[in-house]
Every structure is written in C-alpha cells, then in structure tokens.
Design a protein around this nucleic acid. Structure first.
Lengths: 118, 118
DNA sequence: TTAATTAATATGCTAAAGTATATAGATTAG
DNA sequence: CTAATCTATATACTTTAGCATATTAATTAA
C-alpha cells in the first residue's frame, strides 16, 4: 500500500518562507510592531509567526505577504520549477533588498510524523 | 482614490481558489471523503473549506493543494501577472483536467454566510 | 419505489490561532 | 551608566480551526 502516505502536518511555516517574511520586512525597515499595525495584528503575533511558534491561517498569511508586496499563488506542481526560475531571474544577483529565495517544497522541517491511525 | 486602504480580512478563501480546489478534486474523481482520507481530514472539513465556511490554516491548505498536484508559492507582486500567464499558457485549451483559472487577487469576496436554511 | 453515494449542515468537543497586556533580554543611542 | 527601541516570551482570555459524529438532502443506480 504505497499510496497511503499520510502528509506530515507542518508545525510551523517552512523556515525558508519565514526567512523571506523577515527579510522582506527588514528590507522595508519595518519593526514587527510597525508591520502589525498595518495588518491589525499585535507585535507578539508577528513574532510568533516569524519564529515558527504558530502556523497562521491562510487569510492571515495572505494579508501579511501582500503588505510585503508579495502574493501566494496556486501553481501546478509541474510549473513550480519554472516559476521559481522566473523569480530567481527577477531577483538581481546580490540584491541588497534581501529578496532571495522563495519557498518551494516541504522540507519536512519539524513535522510531527506521529499520527495514530485508527 | 485613497491609497492606503486597510487590509480587509478574508472571511473565506477567495472563490476562485475554492473553485480551483473543487475542480481539481473532481478532475481526479475524488469525493470529499476520499480527499479527506488522504489528508487525514473529515469530509465535513473539506466541505467547509470548499464552501467557504472556514478559512483553513496555511499548513492545512498546503497539504490540500499538494495532494491535488499543486503548490502555494510566494511570488513578488511584480511577477504575479507573468506567473499567471505562465500557468494559463501551460493549461492546454480543452484539457481534460479541470485546470483553468488560478487564484489571483482579492476579488473582495466578503463571503457573507449563504444561509440557505430550511 | 429502495438503496447507495455524495455533499452540506448541525452539535459538541479539543486544540490552537488570535488578542491584549506586561515584561525580559537584547541592542543601540545619549 | 541611562534611556529608548526591537524582539521574544509569558499569562490570560476569546474566537475558531479542526475532529468526531449524526443527519439531511440531493443525486444515482437498481
């Protein structure tokens, strides 16, 4: 039964994505409190998201990335590498803006693999 | 017009995204229960997400789209149109799969509860 | 018609997101 | 040094995602 691979649930946002968020915020010289004000979120929540303490709802994360001039797009798996290349190409090499990587794959990160099946 | 509008919080996933999820699932001839089994989610939860009753956490939505052979990518705003074009181009016209639109912008969903109660 | 499948809804519950506040540990400016 | 800023953490509280279950309605087939 190899088609029964259960998806390991993330316990936090992928570190690459979190890094992107922090870099984008700092690239604008915004403090966590400043970013929170623009979103109507407390500074503590921004901290929790950036440090991986909480997994935000999709709407929360969407608001967050949009304030940082980004968007979350639904992309067919087959096109992911192409989109990644597009983004990398767009980012000037050695850009001081802190625009670098994009969040791509699972990375397993700190997934809680333990899930008792009935 | 006024430039700095407060970010209106989504009360549900954008309808375009929800539509994509439903079409992708049906394209694979999966019932809500079948999809839920693969994710470890109850059918009722799938229903709630698809109908806009609940906003899933990011990890939940990520699991969901990945089972449907898609991914959520963080894309710089300036590149959103290019990525959209890339996706549209990739979708062959008349493709048997339910691959059509992609989720793009806010759309001002609002998602007022459609109370079709009896 | 009956029976099975699919999807939506309702209730109750638990876990966690989200809010508000205060504060400690850094860092930087004075 | 003090003072201010930024970030992480802690506590308490409210809201809601998520889980389990049952039910309703609509569809589909026999």
């Amino acid at each position: 039964m190899l088609s029964h691979l259960k998806v390991a649930r993330l316990r936090a946002l992928p570190s690459a994505l979190r890094l992107e968020l922090v870099e984008a915020r700092r690239g604008r010289s915004w403090s966590q409190a400043e970013l929170g004000e623009r979103l109507g979120l407390p500074q503590t929540h921004i901290s929790g998201i950036e440090t991986g303490k909480t997994v935000p709802r999709f709407d929360t994360l969407l608001d967050l990335v949009r304030v940082l001039d980004r968007d979350l797009l639904l992309v067919p798996r087959a096109l992911v590498p192409a989109v990644q290349a597009l983004i990398r190409n767009h980012m000037a090499p050695g850009d001081g803006e802190g625009e670098r990587a994009l969040y791509a794959d699972n990375e397993a990160e700190e997934a809680d693999a333990t899930r008792s099946q009935a």
